[in-house]
Design a protein around this nucleic acid. Sequence first.
DNA 1: CCAGTAAGTCAACAACTGTTGACTTCGACG
DNA 2: CGTCGAAGTCAACAGTTGTTGACTTACTGG
Lengths: 186, 186
Amino acid sequence: MPERRARSAVTTRAAILDAARARFGTNGYERTTMRAVASDVGVDPALVVRYFTNKESLFAEAAEFELHLPDLHDVPAQELATVLMPRFFAVWENDGAFLPLLRAAASSPRAAEAMLQVFARQVAPALAAVAADHADERAALVGSQVLGLAFSRYVLRVPPLADMTHEQLMRWVGPVLEYYLTTDPR
Amino acid sequence: MPERRARSAVTTRAAILDAARARFGTNGYERTTMRAVASDVGVDPALVVRYFTNKESLFAEAAEFELHLPDLHDVPAQELATVLMPRFFAVWENDGAFLPLLRAAASSPRAAEAMLQVFARQVAPALAAVAADHADERAALVGSQVLGLAFSRYVLRVPPLADMTHEQLMRWVGPVLEYYLTTDPR
DNA sequence: CCAGTAAGTCAACAACTGTTGACTTCGACG
DNA sequence: CGTCGAAGTCAACAGTTGTTGACTTACTGG
């Protein structure tokens, strides 16, 4: 039992990160204050900067996330949505890092750039495995629909969308993803 | 010739409103400062509040816009996108009020509510004219795709999307709108 | 038991924000 | 010409924000 501090450093650091994600996720970047995050954890604001040096760095760390999209090479077109959508739901609803980034991307160029990187490094390559042609355009179109869904459902909370189940959404959106990835527009 | 002031009140008022739209549109609500708007017009900050009383009221007026969606009753399904998309492009690119609202909606509950009202009062009713059934769900899905497109193209500036022409986008997105409005998911 | 170090607090700073009230400028009109 | 009201400025306020540096607390290893 090497250490048993009343509160180990890693513990409060993680707590601060969680609180930051929650605040950034519901209030966005500018409306989230260091003091509020600190007080959520019951700690002095100075400690937050001691651990994360900056509001900007705190945000950067809070907004890091991995989609973990599976390899799509052997997935038949009709099952693309069944494979993809659950991953999106997971990132949107469980991991707390997506919403902060989405909200902040709307008004902060830096956050927008970060979101663009997530798309370029995680989404586009995975989708390239199944795109018929014009892979970058197809991936971007899928991204626009997916992002629009997240924005409408979690940020705007458009009533019908916010209340639908995962299954209902998959049935509606599935054919669209399949179309964007594999079909040629008329 | 009743009035010929060097700068009539209505003129500077309109100039302030324009500057506000531009600032809100590119920087979002919180990062837009009264002082910056005032200085864009070459005027004292106090004058801005004299005309608009509040930052919040200034934003409210700057973010008002009308979609002017046409009556869709006699539009055949295959031409829905040809009729709808040009209106969206017009509001996105010419009128300066859409982007401020979209950006602000991401981090301000009030702005989100305003955007929801635009959807409920202007988009949903117009689309109800052609929706096969579940009109509210179908309208919301169209809204999610349209919003996602705007977000990706104008806020995030996803490269392929930002560079595509109106015609290219219409060809890709058109079938999706048609599907959401008229087809049953499999 | 005691010193060292990590964990945390405290008060304060400088900058910036929205907003206010009193003042000035100036064109129009009787 | 003189005055009246609109158009606009000025300086300043009160509050909030991120960030800093010096200080205190408390656990642990020797």
